[in-house]
Computed example of a mutant assay.
Amino acid sequence: MAKNILGGGYSLFVVGHKRRSRIDDLVQRGAREFQTYRELAEHSDLIILCVIGSPEVESILYSKDGLLEGIRKDKIVIDCSTSEPSSSEQIAISLKKLGASLVDAPLARTPDDAQAGRLNTMVGASKDDFQRVEPVLQQFCENIFHMGPVGSGHKTKLIYNFITMGYAAIISEAFCACAATGVDLQKFSDVVASGGANSGIFQLIAPKAIESGDCSGLNFSMANAAKDLRYYNRMMDTIPLSGNLGRSVQHALIQGLNLGYADGLVGDLLHVQEKLNGVQ
């Protein structure tokens, strides 16, 4: 993302986090590094965050030498993390008091798409703020959807991830059912691929898993997926929405974490089902 912003001719300021090599590469390409988020905010018109979730976003904004200490009028914070809408709404209030604003723009697609500037983003912003940030988002996003006011992007992403992780959980259980009942997995996959049950998620997971047992087709961490479903269910509780599928999907992911896949991918739900049911 940062590389593509630089490639688009924008000035880029960064704060180092975990991977020093990436910061060094950006600095060599022309970025300027600051040591604190306060300094970053003081020198930037648009500040882009892309971290794990709301606790990390809140820490970057509210901690000592955080963004809020350097925010001034007309600056915009763009949160590309998958964050909790209730937290985002409070952050928007804090920024508004300073004359600044929040844009929520969570991302979808893969790390390879990020490198190529082909991500998808779902944006929550006022019309004016969207017009200001859209040219920057275009540097690393192929498809940009303005979903509505602040918070709409994060709400959309959580519902989107509920569908994505729900597909993955169903596919994993279905493959286990095939193994338990003697249905040939390749033939089953052919049936799905030719009918209405086919999906992009199925095609990410099934071919590699059947060919070699490789569950990395859906390259998304199980821990982050469980976090997103936790956010989704808390969001639904505030409505409240009657339905138990969100918690069922979250439970499937928690089972995976508890069975040793805390560092695994969502596709490893296939292995989780194997362990739970004693089939391969």
Rank of each mutant, 00 (worst) to 15 (best):
I78H: 04
I78F: 00
I78D: 00
D79F: 07
S81F: 09
S81Y: 08
T82Y: 14
T82I: 03
T82Q: 10
S83H: 10
E84P: 00
E84G: 02
P85Y: 10
S86Q: 15
S86M: 08
S87E: 11
S87R: 05
S87A: 13
S87M: 12
S88V: 09
S88A: 14
E89D: 10
E89G: 14
E89W: 10
Q90Y: 09
Q90C: 04
Q90L: 14
I91V: 15
I91R: 13
I91Y: 09
A92H: 05
A92W: 04
A92I: 03
I93Q: 12
I93S: 12
L95Q: 06
K96M: 11
K97A: 14
K97I: 07
G99Q: 08
G99L: 05
G99R: 02
L102V: 08
L102I: 08
V103S: 07
V103R: 06
V103H: 04
V103P: 09
D104M: 04
D104R: 01
A105P: 03
P106C: 12
P106T: 08
L107I: 11
L107Q: 05
A108C: 05
R109H: 11
R109S: 08
T110W: 00
T110R: 01
D112T: 09
D113T: 02
D113E: 12
D113R: 00
D113M: 10
D113V: 02
A114C: 04
Q115W: 05
Q115V: 14
Q115D: 11
A116K: 14
G117V: 02
R118F: 08
R118Q: 15
R118D: 15
R118I: 09
L119Y: 01
L119Q: 04
N120S: 15
T121F: 00
M122E: 08
M122W: 10
V123H: 01
G124K: 05
A125L: 07
A125T: 02
K127T: 15
K127S: 14
D128Q: 13
D129Q: 06
F130I: 00
Q131N: 14
Q131C: 07
Q131G: 11
R132D: 00
R132E: 01
P135V: 09
P135K: 03
V136R: 01
L137S: 06
Q139T: 13
Q139G: 02
F140H: 03
C141I: 01
C141S: 05
C141E: 03
E142W: 10
N143T: 12
N143M: 12
I144P: 13
I144R: 01
